[in-house]
Design a protein around this nucleic acid. Structure first.
Length: 559
RNA sequence: UGACCCAUGGUGUAAUGGUAGCACUCCGGUUUUUGGUAUCGUCAGUCAAGGUUCGAGUCCUUGUGGGUCAACCA
C-alpha cells in the first residue's frame, strides 16, 4: 500500500494555492459547525471527515462549533449526541465552542455598524419586507425606515435588546443594496426578537443574531482560515464577505468560505427536516433506528467508525450534485468486518435434521475457527448432537447439479463437523417438511486428519445443535425507500416511496457462545451476513440487527 | 425571465494543456470446509457544436441539460 496520494481534492488544492501564495501553514485552522437541532447523518460525516481530515493532514486545529443562534429549534440533547458522534467517528476537536459565546461581541459590533450608518432598525411586517425584497429577476425597493438617523437606530436597537418590543415587531437590518443582483444582499436581517429561553444563555438575550451575521464573524473571531460549507451557501458568500469587511482588521487572518456538494446516498433521504419527519411520524423508531442514515442509526446497525471514514474518503468530494450508491457504503462495512468480525453460526429459518446413526444422548464440543481471515482470533467450541437445525433453504428433496446443498441421497459438509447424507424426510399433513433424516460419516470430523475428513463434498452448511441452541430475535433490514432518490421526484412526496418491507423480524437460533455477547458486538453469521447485538437485548432476550448480508451469488443465479 | 454553480463509464471520484486512471456495481474464470473472502479478467466514459493550439476532458464561445438563490431557519 502506498499512502502517497498525489491527487488533491479541490479544497486541498485551494489550501495548497494559499500556502504557495504566502499563507503560513500554522495559520491553518478549520471548524465543524453543526446546528444542534437534530442528529448527525452520513452527509455530516463527509463534512466531519473533510474538516478533521484537513486538520490531520496539515497538523492544524479543528474546532467543534455549535451554531446555536436559534433558541426555538436547538436543544442540549442534540449537542450531546453530536459530540458523541464526532468522538465515535474517531476525531478530536481543538476547542468546543458555541456561536452563543459571541452574542455580546456580535452585539457590540452591530452597534458599531449602526454608528457607521450600515444598519438600521425596521419595524415593518415581514410581509411588507418580503414584498420589497423583489425577486431574483426584479430589483427590490427600499424600506421606508432605511434612512432613519443613527441616533434613532441606536435607541431602537437598545430597546429591542432590552425587551421593550414584541417578538416580530422589529428587526435590525444591514444597509447594503435593495437592488443587488444577489437576493442575500438586499438589506438582510441581522437580528430578530425572540423571547425564548436559550439552551446556554438562558434568558439573557431576547434578540438573536441570524446565521449569516453570526457565521462569518464567528469564523473571524476563531481565526478560521478555511470555512467549508455545502453548496447551497454559495450565494451567501457575498454577505459573508461583506459582514467580515465591517469588522476586519488587516493584521488578522481573513477567513475564506468555500463550498462543496453535499453527499447524497441512494435509497434514503438526507435532510434533517425529512429525517425528523420520519421520527416524529413513527415511521422509524427514533433517530437511531438502524434504517436511518444517521450516525447513531448506522452505529446501532453495526457500522464501524472506520467503515464510515473509509466511505467518506472513497466517495470523495466535489462540486457536483451526486447520489452515491449505497453499495459503496455496504462494501466499506463488509470489507472492514470481514477482517475483524468473529464468525459464528446462527440459523434464521430453521428446519430440523435428525442424524439417525448418531448415538442418542451423545454430544460433542467441536473446535471452530473464530475468523479464517485472522489467525490471532483463535478458536471456540461449538456443541454438536443428534438433532440440529439447518436453514430451510439449504435443503431440497430434489435439485439440479447447481444446488450445492443438501438433497435426498446427497452429501454435504456441516461446517466444522461431519459430512452428512440426506436419507428421507418427515412431513406434516400439509406436506411441509418437519424433519430431515440423515446419516453421518463417522470418520469425517473436520480437522481430525482422517482420510474421510479430507473428502471434498461440494456444499458446506452452517447449523446449530437444537439442544444447545439459544433463541434470538433477529431484525433484518432492507433499504428504507424503494427509489434511488426518493426526494427528487417533483410530483410525489418522498414518503410515497417508503419500502413496506424495510424491517423483518425473525426468531432465530444461535450457537450458545453468543450468550456472552454484549451490546454493539459484531459477528459474522456464517454464510448469512454481519450482525450486531442491539441495545434492546436483555439478560433473557437476545436481539441482533443485520448490518449487511454477505454477497450471495447463489441467490443471483436463482433469479 | 436574472445571477451564480455544475457537466468524465450504471455510480462516485482522478488526470500542471501531453497515454482518460482508481473504487463500487454488473458479468465471467480460478481458489475455497462460508455459493463469503482472496485472486485474475471482461464490459463500460470526457453533454453538443464551433474555436485557440503541434496537441483540449482541461482554455474560449455558443448551445443543451441539471442545480442553487426571494424564512424574523441554519
Amino acid at each position: 500500500m502506498n499512502e502517497e496520494k498525489n491527487s488533491l481534492n479541490f479544497i486541498e488544492q485551494i489550501i495548497e494555492d494559499d500556502l504557495a501564495n504566502g499563507l503560513a501553514q500554522d495559520k491553518l485552522r478549520f471548524r465543524f459547525p453543526p446546528e444542534p437541532n437534530g442528529y448527525l447523518h452520513i452527509g455530516h460525516a463527509a463534512s466531519i471527515c473533510l474538516n478533521f481530515g484537513l486538520g490531520l493532514r496539515y497538523n492544524a486545529p479543528v474546532n467543534l462549533r455549535f451554531d446555536d443562534t436559534n433558541p426555538a429549534k436547538e436543544e442540549q440533547e442534540y449537542v450531546d449526541s453530536i459530540k458523541h458522534d464526532v468522538q465515535w467517528l474517531g476525531f478530536t476537536w481543538d476547542k468546543e465552542l458555541y456561536s452563543s459565546d459571541y452574542f455580546q461581541q456580535l452585539y457590540d459590533w452591530a452597534v458599531e455598524i449602526i454608528k457607521n450608518g450600515k444598519a438600521y432598525v425596521d419595524d415593518q411586517s415581514s410581509e411588507e419586507m418580503a414584498l420589497q425584497k423583489g425577486t431574483p429577476t426584479e430589483p427590490g425597493t427600499d424600506s421606508k425606515n432605511r434612512n432613519r438617523s443613527v441616533e434613532e437606530n441606536l435607541a431602537l436597537f437598545l430597546k429591542m435588546k432590552n425587551g421593550d418590543f414584541e417578538e416580530g415587531s422589529h428587526v435590525l437590518r444591514a444597509k447594503i443594496d435593495m437592488k443587488h443582483v444577489n437576493m442575500h444582499m438586499r438589506d438582510p436581517i441581522m437580528y430578530r426578537i425572540l423571547k425564548r429561553h436559550h439552551h446556554r444563555t438562558g434568558n439573557d438575550w431576547c434578540i438573536y443574531p441570524m446565521y449569516d451575521w453570526t457565521h462569518g464573524e464567528s469564523d473571524y473571531l476563531e481565526q478560521i482560515s478555511h470555512s467549508i460549507c455545502t453548496l447551497e451557501f454559495k450565494s451567501h458568500r457575498d454577505l459573508y464577505d461583506w459582514y467580515i469587511d465591517q469588522v476586519y482588521d488587516p493584521a488578522k487572518l481573513r477567513p475564506k468560505q468555500r463550498e462543496f456538494a453535499r453527499r447524497n446516498l441512494s435509497y434514503t433521504v438526507m435532510s434533517k427536516r425529512k429525517l425528523l419527519q420520519l421520527v416524529e411520524e413513527g415511521i422509524v423508531t427514533g433517530w437511531d433506528d438502524p434504517r436511518m442514515p444517521t450516525i447513531s442509526g448506522l452505529r446501532r446497525r453495526g457500522y464501524t467508525p472506520e467503515s464510515i471514514r473509509t466511505f467518506s474518503e472513497t466517495a470523495g468530494i466535489s462540486k457536483r450534485d451526486n447520489v452515491t450508491d449505497v453499495a459503496l457504503l455496504e462494501y466499506c462495512i463488509k470489507d472492514d468486518l470481514n477482517k475483524t468480525a468473529p464468525r459464528v453460526m446462527a440459523v434464521l429459518d430453521p428446519v430440523k435434521v435428525v442424524i439417525t446413526n448418531y448415538p442418542k444422548g451423545n454430544e460433542e464440543w467441536l473446535t471452530a475457527e473464530n475468523n479464517q481471515e485472522d489467525e490471532s482470533a483463535g478458536f471456540r467450541e461449538v456443541p454438536f448432537s443428534r438433532e440440529i437445525y439447518i436453514e430451510k433453504e439449504d435443503f431440497r428433496e430434489e435439485a439440479n447439479k447447481k444446488f450445492f446443498r443438501l438433497k435426498l441421497g446427497n452429501e454435504v459438509r456441516l461446517k466444522n463437523a461431519y459430512i452428512i447424507k440426506a436419507e428421507s424426510v418427515v412431513k406434516d399433513e400439509n406436506g411441509e417438511i418437519t424433519e430431515i433424516h440423515c446419516t453421518y460419516d463417522t470418520e469425517s470430523l473436520s480437522g481430525s486428519g482422517t482420510e474421510a475428513s479430507q473428502r471434498k463434498v461440494k456444499g458446506t452448511l452452517h447449523w446449530v445443535s437444537i439442544k444447545h441452541a439459544v433463541k434470538a430475535e433477529v431484525r433484518v433490514y432492507d433499504r428504507l425507500f424503494t427509489e434511488e432518490a426518493p426526494d427528487s421526484n417533483k410530483e410525489k412526496d418522498f414518503k410515497d416511496f417508503l419500502n413496506p418491507d424495510s424491517l423483518t423480524v425473525l426468531e432465530a437460533f444461535v450457537e450458545p457462545s453468543l450468550k456472552e455477547a454484549n451490546v454493539l458486538d459484531r459477528f459474522q453469521f456464517q454464510r448469512l451476513g454481519y450482525f450486531c447485538v442491539d441495545k434492546d437485548t436483555t439478560e433473557f432476550h437476545l436481539v441482533f440487527n443485520r448490518t449487511v448480508p454477505l454477497r450471495d451469488s447463489w441467490a443471483k443465479m436463482e433469479e
